[in-house]
Design a binder for these strands. Sequence first.
DNA 1: ATGCAATCTCAAGCTAAGTTGAGGTCAAGC
DNA 2: GCTTGACCTCAACTTAGCTTGAGATTGCAT
Lengths: 146, 146
Amino acid sequence: MTRANFITIGQLSKRTGVAVSAIRFYEEKGLLHSLRTSGNQRRFLRSDIRRVSFILIAQRLGLALSEIEEQLAGLPEERNPTLGDWQKISRQMRDQIDDRIRLLNRTRSQLDQCIGCGCLSLQKCQLYNKDDKLGLKGPGPRAVLD
Amino acid sequence: MTRANFITIGQLSKRTGVAVSAIRFYEEKGLLHSLRTSGNQRRFLRSDIRRVSFILIAQRLGLALSEIEEQLAGLPEERNPTLGDWQKISRQMRDQIDDRIRLLNRTRSQLDQCIGCGCLSLQKCQLYNKDDKLGLKGPGPRAVLD
DNA sequence: ATGCAATCTCAAGCTAAGTTGAGGTCAAGC
DNA sequence: GCTTGACCTCAACTTAGCTTGAGATTGCAT
């Protein structure tokens, strides 16, 4: 248990490219956890670099922070996750990517049909299946589509 | 030029499922345009039903309203777009879907490599190519990724 | 032991994409 | 000709994901 196992928020920020304010925000949202020094400063585990990396990747896939939190819940809290832990979570993520690709392919072929008729109309096109959320989290008229 | 060419905001709302307030909002943002009656009420073209439909589809693909506005700029303002106009714009959209699918496939294979090593680290994984915006509009630490 | 950068908390502000409500007007049917 | 529902504007509120700023404290280097 060398001192090197703990890093400051600034170090975590530099290693991940994520702003200090954003790291505090993630902690507030429950995506990260820290210990405190006697002087009330945060100390993170080195493995939190990987945790933040995961957050970044998942965000780029379109996951909301709340969804990422659910995924991260599969990891042991407050101690170093094993390689196996990360592999499991990575595989879940790959499945989500697969889902999105399938959905996009479906949408694409529906759009192809629409190009044929130029309709783009709510009645004729299949593009409005309420359950297919392409964005996974996307914006949109929430009250209507959700 | 029968009177039937014009519809009220309420009719547009009912035909598209989009709330009246959202339609006003879209107009304010420049995605829709309307004429006014002597009593200051909005009158839309019938073809705006299709226009709103397009907005909905594009949103579900993850486009921001500002991006949708750019796409719609290709349509003639204030007069009925032809079938060809719509087909052109549909094809553009299909190309965007193709791009997203390609990007997802790339990400997926990179993630596969990562599963092998369980790394998920910024240095080793290729998952952080700053130019690949998977979300197309996605959230994320804007200041960092943009 | 002191100085300065890094931290801390807390409140306020920002953008996107709308919704909600107040207070007022329009228009269509009886 | 009046009532009622649809419409109008404008301002304020909402959620997500942060950033910015103020004012106070900590902790490493000299």
